[in-house]
Amino acid sequence: MSFLTALIILGVLALIFGLILGFAAVRFHVEGDPIVEQIDALLPQTQCGQCGYPGCRPYAEAIANGEEINKCPPGGETTIKNLSELLGVEAKPLDAAHGTETVKKVAVIREDECIGCTKCIQACPVDAILGAAKHMHTVIAHECTGCDLCVEPCPVDCIDMVPVPVRPDNWQWDLQQIPVRVVESGNE
């Protein structure tokens, strides 16, 4: 009998708390940024497809549906860390199957070799290549995300990926990397 009483009491309690929780969930519902938007905002937007999805937004959608967060080489550790903080999951090392984190690069067309086939223009996910059929193409360097996607389609292999140059205004204070010139001193 006491066993039954306990069951009933617990059951009623569970019901009451369930109702309270349900009420609270509806009453205090917070309309946040949709999670896909938040994930997308953390991705580097190179649109390179190295994750296996055709762009950053599709990958963001996949992450929202439970995909791993460590498949974005351009974003690297920083992106993984940010994603893990946003989603409350554990940060993992970058999945090497999708590539490794390298220096930021930008595509450059060797313009005298370009035959004007427009294949790279079609491949570029951010419309950063300018040109017309049978005319020379060129890359708008500051719009290029360095995604690599234009290199493969080029029939004459005239696109190079070159590292983004370090200029005084984006220099990161690496004193050790400054080449020091050794000069003869007159007094020794």
Binding site: L175, Q176, I178, V180, V183, E188
Partner: peptide, 8 residues
């Protein structure tokens, strides 16, 4: 002679 680089 080499020039020594250092942070201020």
């Amino acid at each position: 002679m080499t020039f020594k680089l250092a942070a201020s």
